[in-house]
Nucleic acid binder design. Structure first.
Lengths: 143, 143
DNA sequence: TATTGTTATACTCTATAACTATA
DNA sequence: TATAGTTATAGAGTATAACAATA
């Protein structure tokens, strides 16, 4: 039952990655959900709340609350949308950008440490296998 | 930066697995945290709340709340501990065992679907690579 | 009429601290 | 004194529904 073993391993890795992210967030005075929002915002640039909701897979109401907290902590700001007066743009402040950069560096360090004893061709094979697993998971969840 | 790609893929897989578990829980009238507790309980048999807390990585208080809900829904029961009168044993009811069995089958199906297009030796290699990643993650989180 | 974001409300998960009973 | 579990309290995330403003 090797396939079952693979799923068990993926679930165990998922648990530990979640815990690691949670620890980092706590050290930075942040929470996992707010960190996730900042991460997406850093990746796609200033954007609207309903688009963030789609990216994060949460309801619009949730984004309102997360952005409220992040505005208060100084990581993001709301700006009027230039073309649609119903909407707003969520933008990173310099403090939010600095946080995203620390997060990016932490992830790069973690990635290096995870793979540092594996030969390069093994890492490449792992990446290809995970791409297969990911695309299959995406298909299964859409159905 | 293949190592970074691997981490990104692991994070993406983690997100989808979490969502899949959450969907299954919702269909069954359950929540992810209660499902996780039932899963551990099915794996290790009747046990004490503080041991469950250690397994799940949550505070003792959290286990009290989860068990409260699961008692109300009929999935588990509390029994006096035969040797330590301070403590209790959390046990699966027949309904809880039936749920655990459905969960096990769902996971087996998912595992089969994830790997079904990969040759057997590739699945074995993926398992070995994930074992490396998992043990390294565990070491990093302990430090 | 449909969409965007918000307010209102409720539930779940979680942690910390204080408390009770037992070891 | 230390441990096991619980009660009490508080905060964070989430969803649904209702609402106002705009498209």
């Amino acid at each position: 039952m090797t396939a079952v073993d693979v799923l068990d391993l993926l679930l165990a890795v998922s648990t530990l990655l979640t815990k690691d992210t949670s620890n980092f967030a706590a050290r930075e005075g942040m929470t996992p959900a707010r960190l996730h929002l900042l991460w997406e915002l850093a990746a796609e640039g200033a954007t609207q709340p309903h688009l963030l909701a789609g990216r994060l897979g949460v309801a619009a109401r949730t984004v309102t609350g997360l952005v409220d907290h992040l505005v208060e902590s100084g990581h993001v700001a709301r700006a009027p949308h230039p073309e649609d007066r119903r909407s707003t743009l969520v933008i990173l402040t310099p403090q939010g950008e600095a946080f995203a950069e620390r997060l990016r560096q932490m992830r790069a360090n973690l990635a290096r440490q995870l793979c540092e004893t594996m030969p390069d061709n093994r890492v490449g094979a792992l990446r290809e296998d995970l791409e297969v697993v990911l695309s299959r998971l995406q298909r299964l969840l859409d159905a």
